[in-house]
Design a protein around this nucleic acid. Structure first.
Length: 584
RNA sequence: GCGCCCGUAGCUCAAUGGAUAGAGCAUCUGACUACGGAUCAGAAGGUUACAGGUUCAAGUCCUGUCGGGCGCACCA
């Protein structure tokens, strides 16, 4: 796999050493464990560390240190690859690579450009990522925003590592909630015409309902004249559904999110798919009748009890169409289904996995990414919300206030499994408190180097046209090491469905860039002012410690380094759906 | 009562079973007449809730306890 040119070289060197030792009879383990290379925490532990010797200790029945020594003795290209190879306490193999190996990373990034970090791990297996899927009964709120950001990032990450991904929004346009929506709008509509009717007990109270009712009045009043109450209510329902779904689409677009597919629940009911699926399950003995209701035997697949799919009154439950929906996904041939849900639905996982199993698939064909609640704060104080009472902060309001980039980055900064405190005041601050700007600023800073270089007529050759061997400073090599870790960070985040690892990585990379930028120069000074100091007598040459000597070769090499950093920042932000601006 | 998630620095949170547990914020002290100060350097801050267990190695895995959140519908 393409985990980066450096990792590949070192891994194959280690593998060669292991196999060599085995041929000589020095090692006897049948299959080698996975050779992972960690970037050690401390610089004196080298550039990369392997734990393979310790992993082999049990099967070899030898001390890890001895095994490590055997590996070292069998390293064929030791002189070409490594400056230092050391064994540390329990049996770590600490490797320090030759700078020339690291320098290749910049050429690799240049060659691969926007595809740097991508991989073919997915082998084009087909994945359906379903997310948001909010009922079209009102505007999207903050919680949906987090689900949207996570879903998009997961889909993008999986695409980046070689899966064939389709993103889908499941529209709950059938059933009780839609009826309530219709009767709520109907009640408001009649009230607008001074014909008050009883407001449904569990109806939607938000101000947007009244707004929809007003639109009904403006656009449909002539058409509705003389109709029965039931007809008017039905028209209110379809009108409200269209309008609210339209709003949801606009909100998502505003957030920079586009779905490849929109799937209607009602279409499953209308096509008879729900009925068909239930019949299938019945013929398989996975469905039975009791107390006048139909039950899905989910307990046969590990759910704690069986679940009703058709109520005594003959209505289908939500589960019925969800079974049909997931069966439809499987039927469309996806190898993996990923559902992004609010964490309050976690109890639903076993029964959906039961569905998958009832259709003869392993239960892990369905993976559910749970997104925990968002705690909205303003200046440290909690913002209270209640959807029933119609008091909530919408996703659009959040984007209006802090911007789509900041909102996404904040939503993705934490493990989606943890509650998220989202402080609106903090997210819109254009200050060092704000991690989004920190990362974006790193990108913009590099972009400004190109502008300044162009203005001064300084050449910016590509890494492939540059002598990179001057990049030997620990800070330079440290940056390159970080860049070389990007592919494995992306791949790890993708396979774990954990976009927050990406935001952490990007913050770290940006931090290294800012540190470097403050400590070292990249472009030569505009004048020789750095050799002078201000005194009462005017400018005089500085005595003592000279500034870093910045020969043109070093400027070119550092610009090449900057180009690599900029590319990786751009790629990483892109996967998260966040922009990488050249100016801020 | 049962199930799922969480418990790490004052706060918000990181850490594929790896070495001396790391960032940001807040606090304190510092840094541009040069490439963007939306930045940087330094200090201080910890019995990883608690008790056992598994192993070369545990914040991470297992068991139990305590605390918080969320579920346990013929709602969605």
């Amino acid at each position: 796999m393409s985990s980066g040119v450096v990792q590949e070289k070192v891994t194959s060197a280690l593998l060669g050493a292991l196999n060599g030792a085995k041929q000589k009879g020095q090692l006897k383990t049948e299959a080698w464990p996975e050779l992972s290379l960690d970037a050690p925490k401390r610089p004196e532990w080298g550039d990369l560390a392997s734990t393979v010797a310790m992993s082999l200790a049990a099967s070899e029945q030898r001390a890890p240190h001895d095994i490590a020594q055997i590996i070292i003795d069998n390293l064929a290209q030791r002189e070409q690859l490594f400056d230092r190879v050391e064994i540390a306490r329990p049996g770590f193999l600490n490797l320090t690579l030759k700078p020339s190996i690291w320098q290749e990373v910049l050429r690799e990034i240049e060659m691969q450009g926007s595809t740097y970090g991508r991989a073919e791990l997915g082998e084009s297996r087909r994945v359906l990522v379903e997310y948001v899927s909010a009922n079209p009964t009102g505007p999207l709120h903050v919680g949906h925003g987090r689900g949207a950001a996570v879903g998009q990032a997961v889909a993008n990450m999986l695409k980046a590592v070689g899966y064939d991904v389709v993103s889908e929004y499941y529209i709950n346009d059938a059933g009780r909630q839609m009826k309530l929506l219709g009767s709520s709008v109907y009640a408001r509509y009649e009230a607008l015409s001074n014909r008050p009717v009883e407001f449904p007990t569990e109806g939607y109270h938000g101000a947007y309902i009244t707004a929809v009712a007003e639109h009904v009045k403006q656009q449909l009043e002539p058409e509705l004249a003389g109709r029965t109450a039931a007809e008017v209510e039905e028209r209110c329902r379809t009108f409200a559904y269209q309008e609210l779904l339209g709003l949801i689409r606009e909100d998502l677009k505003y957030f920079g999110i586009e779905f490849e597919s929109w799937f209607s629940e009602a279409s499953l009911v209308d096509s008879g798919a729900v009925q068909r699926v239930l019949n299938e399950l019945k013929s398989q003995q996975f469905l039975f009748e009791e107390e006048g209701a139909w039950w899905f035997r989910s307990s046969a697949f590990g759910d704690e009890k069986d679940r009703v799919v058709r109520k005594q009154d003959g209505e289908y439950t939500y589960l019925a169409s969800d079974i049909a929906y997931h069966q439809d996904k499987l039927r469309r041939g996806y190898d993996l289904l990923i559902d992004v849900w609010g964490a309050d639905h976690h109890g639903y996982i076993p029964r959906m996995q039961a569905v998958v199993q009832a259709y003869g698939h392993p239960k892990d064909r369905l993976q559910v990414v749970l997104v925990q609640m968002v705690n909205l704060l303003r200046g440290g104080k909690k913002v209270e919300m209640s959807k029933r009472a119609g008091e909530f902060i919408t996703m659009r309001e959040v984007i209006d206030e802090v911007g789509a980039d900041a909102a996404k980055f904040f939503f993705l900064m934490r493990d989606s499994n943890s509650h998220l405190d989202f402080d609106l005041e903090l997210a819109k601050q254009r200050s060092s408190d704000n991690p989004v700007y920190y990362v974006q600023y790193a990108h913009a800073r590099i972009a400004s180097l190109w502008r300044v270089a162009a203005a001064r007529g300084i050449a910016c050759p590509l890494p492939s046209e540059t002598d990179l061997t001057v990049l030997t400073d620990p800070d330079e090599l440290g940056l390159i090491r970080k860049l070389s870790a990007y592919p494995s960070v992306l791949q790890g985040s993708a396979l774990a469905y954990e976009p927050h690892r990406m935001t952490y990585y990007l913050q770290q990379l940006a931090g290294l860039l800012h540190t470097f930028y403050n400590k070292h120069r990249i472009l030569p000074p505009a004048a020789d002012r750095d050799l002078l100091a201000v005194t009462p007598e005017g400018l005089v040459p500085v005595e003592g410690v000279p500034k870093e000597v910045l020969v043109p070769e070093r400027t070119a090499a550092r610009l090449a380094l900057m180009r690599g950093i900029q590319q990786v920042l751009k790629n990483g932000l892109g996967v998260l759906g966040v922009s990488a601006p050249d100016q801020m």
